[in-house]
Write a protein that binds this DNA or RNA. Structure first.
Lengths: 338, 338
DNA sequence: CCGGATCGTCGAACCGGTTCGCACTCTCAA
DNA sequence: TTGAGAGTGCGAACCGGTTCGACGATCCGG
């Protein structure tokens, strides 16, 4: 493999001159520049990433920490990952993907060893164990998901409160007075998945303010349990005319459940979910939903992270906490109660 | 950040001694070793990955190239990725994830710059453009998917021929004499997705040998087109009593299609798919299937790759082409035709 | 005609590890 | 008494880039 020394020799200049000719950081005569570029082509020279990282203390790699927990829905995560990966590449960065179960150890490993210039954390918990490590790291960090303490990191998340309100308001406007909400499993909440109760509390509050009845329940993250959960909810609340789904697995399972009960949407039941458009297409879901915009969030996180890495915003400049406003995508699964 | 020089100073030894004490590559007195380890703890020393890569020409990183094409089904890919990622970690390697559309350029970038010690290629096409580049690279490569030319790389894939035969035999044994097969979109084949016709041809051959009629068709990769495709197939072949699905999107869309037609499984139609168990659970699919074992394939690819990287098998030792035998998972969606 | 700025290039140092060769100290057997 | 050999540690070189300071040449204005 050719080194910059080989390039320099072929071009008949010193190593430093070759380096400057390629980086453009000092004035170089056009003749020399031409000879260097020629040599690069001739030798097929590509700089050695390790050597460059050592010299510049920049790796042009961003660490992406994604946890695939038993009780969360894997395909939903993929969307965030792709948003992050594609955006990073647009900015010249590669992605080091970490799916290790022990996120804290992994995070320490890749930051301390300087494998990455920055970190993106996915599915962040209320009190995330990885956060103290990230704050102590030399590299900047961006989160997708809202923790209790946002100091020292940039945070991006869907406005789950607004999402909850939006769903309730929408059904209220259509005339529904009793509805049910199926959230993620309760132990996701216990583990610190704050987005679950952020949406739920806002929905409950909005329902209360309008004199609606809202039955808040939790659903499993897998089949066949989640199917049973849905049936149980519908059995328990025969008067409910609307169903809010903040649980991807439940949304995916709902068509067959309704089929089994002989119910049709929106005639027998109005349904509104909270998931991305991509998700809806993938899973053939015919329900209106509050768009969760995972690709947009991943994109925002990387953009801000790159700004920090490249020093466009100073280390001590205030960190941002930005919420994406949810939008309701109408797929015709809601109507007035009959 | 502490360097090995700091460790050496604190321990009162030379840098080389500190290095040997940590690597264990030379005999070191227990006293010195203790002092070095002490210093490491005290300073929180972690070796700099770039420096180590430069010195050893080993990065302990594996490149994972995954293409997310419009006409393929993204969540299915995730399973391969996780199999690869987790296995790599078990062997001490991290994953550099590349999702760039231009796979050839990306591959050249990460191999030439020596960012990775080896490469795993996903969704390999019959005549994959990335293959010549991989062969020319200094690093070994492992594929998941079967190309026309397997020289210079280790190849792992599902035995799609066997899968096709298995599906046909299973339905034949139950008494079916006319069945339909829905494959991936035709342009996946045109692009070189050989697994589509490998399964299809074997299925056709098996059907012919048994005097069965098999209607081979292609289906889209997305809703709502794939739903229309399924309806068209069922309309066109009212005599068909069995349906073979080699198309994840079609499998995911089938429940609602059958619901729409008022058909029930296996009473009105026997259905058998080709997808992973994980996929079936995620998408709540109640159909028997030929298990495609993506995690196992990812795992096998990484294991072999690591063996090559670490020189356990020589550069010139013959490369392997290994097929995983499909297994039929019975979920009760097939029966004798009525 | 001289002095200072500007341009273009080079040598050397540095980033932070690993590894080779050598030297010193002991021990033990001839 | 001496020499071989094992056990330990050190210094220096090397991996392949980047960057700083210096230096010669050219150009300009006074």
């Amino acid at each position: 493999m050719a080194t910059i020394g080989d390039v320099a020799r072929v071009a008949g200049v010193s190593r430093s001159t070759a380096s400057y000719a390629l980086s453009g950081k000092r004035a170089i005569s056009t003749d020399v520049r031409r000879r260097v570029e020629e040599a690069v082509r001739e030798l097929g020279y590509t700089p050695n990433a390790g050597a460059r990282a050592l010299a510049t203390s920049q790796t042009m790699v961003i660490g992406l920490l994604a946890q695939f927990l038993e009780d969360e829905f894997a395909p939903a995560m993929l969307q965030y990952m792709l948003g992050v990966s594609n955006t990073a590449r647009e900015h010249g960065y590669d992605i080091l993907l970490v799916t290790e179960a022990d996120g804290t150890r992994a995070l320490r490993r890749i930051t301390d060893s300087r494998m990455v210039d920055g970190i993106v954390l996915l599915n962040v918990a209320e009190h995330d164990e990885r956060l103290p490590i990230l704050r102590a790291a030399a590299q900047p960090g961006a989160l997708v998901g809202l923790p209790a303490d946002c100091t020292g990191v940039d945070v991006f998340d869907l406005d789950f409160e607004e999402a909850g309100r939006l769903m309730v308001e929408h059904l209220h406007r259509l005339g529904h007075r009793e509805v049910a909400l199926v959230s993620q499993p309760e132990h996701v909440v216990e583990r610190g998945g704050a987005y679950v109760w952020r949406l739920q509390n806002a929905a409950l509050e909005a329902a209360r303010a309008r004199g609606m009845t809202l039955h808040a329940t939790f659903g499993s993250a897998h089949q066949p349990e989640v199917g049973r959960d849905l049936n149980a909810v519908l059995d328990a609340h025969p008067g409910a005319t609307g169903l809010l789904i903040n649980n991807e697995a439940a949304a995916a399972a709902l068509p067959s459940v309704l089929h089994g009960r002989g119910m049709s949407v929106p005639h027998d039941l109005s349904v509104i979910g909270r998931y991305s458009d991509e998700f809806a297409r993938t899973f053939s879901l015919p329900y209106s939903s509050v768009e969760s915009a995972p690709d947009r969030l991943g994109r925002m996180a990387v953009r801000q992270l790159v700004r920090r890495i490249e020093g466009e915003v100073g280390q001590e400049e205030p960190h941002v906490v930005r919420f994406v406003s949810p939008e309701l995508v109408d797929r015709g699964s809601t109507g007035s109660p009959s």
